[in-house]
Design a protein around this nucleic acid. Structure first.
Lengths: 211, 211
DNA sequence: TTATTTCTACCTGTTTTCAGGTATTTTTGC
DNA sequence: GCAAAAATACCTGAAAACAGGTAGAAATAA
């Protein structure tokens, strides 16, 4: 039994989703659900004692964020295949998860057949994506093409203040800087994001969860 | 049977959620699931032929937005109790749904017991919220205190263009308007949102999902 | 058919932002 | 300790945004 049935665990803070996944997967040959968890910490302590072949992982959890959890899982148990299961339909998010060791990325609007197929693919050691996720990967949007620019501490700080409606003189006064310095940071931000003005930048930053 | 068992329909584009809800509610006394739909239009055509006592409605659907659908449902069938079921944990969203006729608002991290209790409450004609939703309602955040201002079609259009980095002259040219007119809309937007400038406005708009 | 909202357009003047640089001093990482 | 990155600061001029109005036409709702 151990040889031909894979163990699967689910981490999701939504009982409804947990129920749905259990129902969908309970009668699938070759897959045994060994645990369902609503928090990352609960799963991690389970993982210390049990072997898990596949983990279906919701990225947005109450206690830890999915990317960090994925990293932890992979360092504790490198053979566990982590399948991110999420509503986040952003390219950057998918890339980040893969970068941190996830074996695949499934959008929550996945169909049951697709879900099972993806789990099988993951078990055989392949990277796998749901249909929706593949589509997103296929068409890098203009804003996401460059990825999220790396911002310095000061730049983030100033971006926040700008998004709160503060003007350059305001910010300079608040941070005890020359207005000219603030202007320089502003310019660098616009350059880094490759946008025309702050309005466009703040939209992207907000959508990317930066502010 | 018609007198003591309430009919319930579910609209959600996530098969997993649909499965979970069906499973959770299938054996509940007094509730009969009469239909599950993944699109708003599919449900609307069902509603024209069938009586639905309670609708569990996911706000984010592929074809129509939940607020509009809720309005449609209530105007076609005022006796249907609409329970919004969503991941949107924003006060403004909850208020908007209630304003448009919803009987309650449930966050998707709701427990099964809570879900059933809420459906029962809705059936008895009461407004109902999940625990999480009640918490959000309890603490109005600073930005959300004023609610989302009602924007006109033109204002939304111009707000979008601004958030794409377009300047007033750009927008005027694109919409065949006087730049002065665009400026007026701009001013009205800033007044409606009670902010100092567009940077602050766009942050709020993005966070509220307006852009 | 009113009344109200929305859309349109105008005016004046000030403030802020943006584009195009250059350049020194701190930090930080190796 | 040295190189690279980050933070600081400066300059000029043009373009855009904002503040504070007013006001007529058009569309919508009551």
């Amino acid at each position: 039994m151990l040889t031909d049935s894979a163990t699967l665990a689910i981490v999701d803070d939504h009982p409804i989703v947990l129920e749905g996944l259990q129902r969908l997967l309970s009668n699938v040959k070759g897959i045994t659900i060994s645990g369902c968890f609503t928090t990352g910490t609960a799963f991690m302590s389970f993982l210390k004692e049990n072997k898990v072949d596949v983990l279906l992982l919701d990225i947005t959890l109450p206690d830890v964020n999915g990317i960090d959890l994925c990293k932890e899982v992979k360092s504790l148990s490198p053979d566990t295949h982590v399948l991110a299961l999420s509503n986040h339909a952003e390219r950057s998010m998918i890339l980040q998860m893969i970068q941190h060791g996830a074996t695949g990325y499934l959008l929550k609007n996945i169909s049951s057949e697709e879900l099972i197929a993806c789990i099988r693919e993951a078990l055989s050691g392949m990277i796998t994506f749901s249909k929706g996720a593949r589509e997103i990967m296929a068409r890098p949007s203009v804003t996401e093409l460059k990825g999220i620019p790396q911002l310095t501490r000061r730049e983030k700080e100033i971006l926040h203040l700008i998004s709160d409606g503060k003007t350059t003189p305001d910010i300079a006064a608040q941070l005890n800087l020359s207005p000219l310095t603030v202007e320089t940071h502003r310019k660098n931000l616009i350059q880094k994001f490759q946008v025309k003005n702050m309005a466009a930048l703040i939209k992207i930053a907000a959508q990317q969860g930066l502010i």
